[in-house]
Structure formats: C-alpha cells, structure tokens
C-alpha cells in the first residue's frame, strides 16, 4: 500500500454509557480510505456504521460517548484529541459530510443561496459575489437547471432529489479531500437515487475526492464503491474490493445479506431473510457476535474471530472461523 490514507481508523472502540452499563457501539474497528478512493461501509441499522461516520468528524454529542481504545486520523490530524477549533476548520473544509435526510438537512427558514455562501465564506477567502458565483457553478455541476433562481428559494420549495443535489454541491464547495456520505440516497426514489449517485461519483472522480460511503444497500455498493467493509454489531466482519466481497462473499453474514437482496430472488419465491436479530450491544457475547444467527457455528465461535486475509496474496479479509469456501459460492 503506497497510497496515503486520507482517513484511517485504527482499532477503534466506542461505547455509550447507559444506566448500569454501556452500549458497545464499535469494537475494534480498523479501516482506511485512500486518496480518491470510494469506500463503502455496509451493515444493517445498529451495526455501528453511522457511529463510525459521526465519530470520524467528532460530531457525536460531547460527553455522550467514551472512546475506550484506538485512534482516528484524517489527513494526519489526530481526531480524538483534536480541539474544537481544529475540527471546525476540517469540517466543511477538507472533509465534508452528506447526510441521509435531504428533507430536513437544510435550515428551513434560510434561502439556499445564503446557506451555501455562508459555508463557502467560512472556509474560503471570497467576497459575497464570488461565493455566489461559485455556488452557481457548483449547482450547475449537479445538473440543476436554473441555479440562479434555486439560490433564491427556500428548502421547502425544492424536491428531495434537488435538495440532496444542493447538499452534494455544498459538500464539494471547498474542494474537500474526503466526503463522508451517510446513506445519502436512502430517502430518495430509486430513479432519483441513481442520478444523484452518478453525479456524486463523477464529481468525486474529477476532483480526486475520496468518499466514505455508509449504506445498507448492497446494490448501491456494487455500482458505486471501489472497496467495501461489512459491519456487524460494531465489528468489521469482511473487507475487500467490491468485486471480491460481492462476488465471493466469505462471511456467513455477508452471504446472508447478498441472499436477501430482492434483485436476486426468483420471481414468485419467498424473499430470503437472515433468521434472528442483531444482538443487544450492551450485552455482546464474548465470541463472534453473529454466532447466534449463523448456520455454520461451532464451539470455536465462542472466541472472537479477527479480521484476517483469506490467503496471503489478497486484500480480501474476513473475520470468521468458518469462512465459506470458494466452491460453495454459487449464489
């Protein structure tokens, strides 16, 4: 690995103190995003993917969480010990974020134009006119037909897809090195979803911006990401290139996710689901967190498996005592 990671998370564990105990949201997560790379983090709700993204920007409410081990570094800055001031220059500057809910992610009582120029002028030495021109050209890049009049509008006057494009334009406004996108298209129609993703990807490739893409949607990952991490109950269970993980999933959980995709189901047949539920994060088992739902569990699963390469010459890693063999993989 000769590339420089823009984001690297090492062995990070985070818990949320609750009455008489703690919810262990992340348990020894290590991941990195290289320059210009689009990396997916997949998992169901409660798997810790959003906590990872919020923590990377230190946006979790102060005092609500405890970092028990590990560290995060963005462009060489130690995030966990960074001051609020350092974080403020990073946020929206070198690192931008796009959130899930375009309907509510913009301030309802301020015009789009002001919301955009505010952010631009916060990070760049531009006068109002120049900031406005930049906002217009950013909106144009997002294929918004009438950028001047869009700037004059309030968020409630725009559709969901338009708002998300505004938010993406805003994310690119200060030429970030990394964009953290937390389920940016989940709330959109499927057709709009694809348009928005393509715009995001094209712009990121053009500017060599890296993206950490949080999602629960395997189909989106396959179109969008270079590499992917699969998360379950606060731990990574599988990692590798999108091709490796999606075409030859080794972890029983990843395979379950793939089998559950409605796109792959035979018409007329029952949709597949993974039996059981996500374990309670305040009472995680000592061993593999997936064991209780796993078809191939054994006694060995009472010990926690570590993410290891499946063989020496690959970046494909899995955290499982009984990874599926290549032959079994005719999905």
């Amino acid at each position: 690995m000769t590339q420089n990671p823009v984001l690297s998370i090492n062995d990070l564990s985070i818990e949320f103190p609750v009455y008489k105990g703690a919810v262990k949201a992340l348990n020894g997560v290590s991941l990195h995003v290289n320059e210009g790379e689009i990396v997916g983090v997949v998992g169901e709700s409660g798997s810790g993917k959003s906590v990872t993204s919020m923590m990377a920007m230190k946006l979790l409410p102060e005092g609500s969480y405890r970092v028990t081990q590990g560290d995060i570094s963005i462009l060489g800055t130690d995030i966990i010990h960074a001051s609020e001031k350092t974080m403020r220059t990073l946020r929206g500057g070198d690192v931008a974020m796009i959130f899930q809910e375009p309907m509510t992610a913009l301030n309802p009582t301020r015009k789009i134009g002001i919301q955009m120029t505010d952010v631009i002028r916060l990070h760049r030495r531009l006068d109002n006119d120049a900031a406005r021109q930049l906002a217009i050209s950013l909106l144009k890049d997002m294929h918004i037909a009438d950028p001047e009049s869009t700037l004059q509008r309030y968020p409630f006057e725009l559709s969901g897809g338009m708002r998300q494009r505004v938010l993406i334009a805003l994310a690119f406004s200060c030429n970030p090195r990394l964009i953290i996108a937390d389920e940016p298209t989940t709330a959109l129609d499927v057709t709009v979803q694809k348009q928005v993703l393509m715009l995001l990807k094209a712009k990121a490739r053009e500017l060599k911006t890296a993206i950490l893409f949080i999602t629960h949607d395997m189909a989106v990952v396959s179109q969008f990401c270079d590499r992917v991490y699969v998360m379950y109950a606060g731990s990574l269970v599988e990692a590798g290139s999108t091709r490796q993980v999606l075409h030859a999933p080794r972890h029983p959980y990843t395979r379950g996710l793939m089998a559950a995709l409605p796109e792959l189901a035979t018409p007329g047949s029952q949709l597949q689901a993974i039996p059981g539920n996500v374990p309670d994060l305040s009472r995680l088992p000592a061993g593999c967190a997936f064991a209780s739902r796993c078809p191939s569990r054994s006694d060995k699963c009472n010990q926690k498996p570590v993410l290891t390469s499946i063989h020496e010459a690959t970046t494909h890693q899995v955290a499982c005592w009984h990874p599926a063999l290549q032959e079994e993989l005719a999905v």
Binding site: M57, L59, R88, T89, L90, R91, G92, G93, A96, M97, F99, E101, T104, A105, L106, N107, P108, D118, V119, L122, H123, L167, L170
Partner: peptide
Amino acid sequence: EDYIRTAKANGTS
C-alpha cells in the same frame, strides 16, 4: 434537528 448537524458538519461555530 438535522439541519443543525449539517451546520456543524460544515464547520459552523
């Protein structure tokens, strides 16, 4: 609200 998180994520003090 979500827009507060957006404002924070954009580096607003």
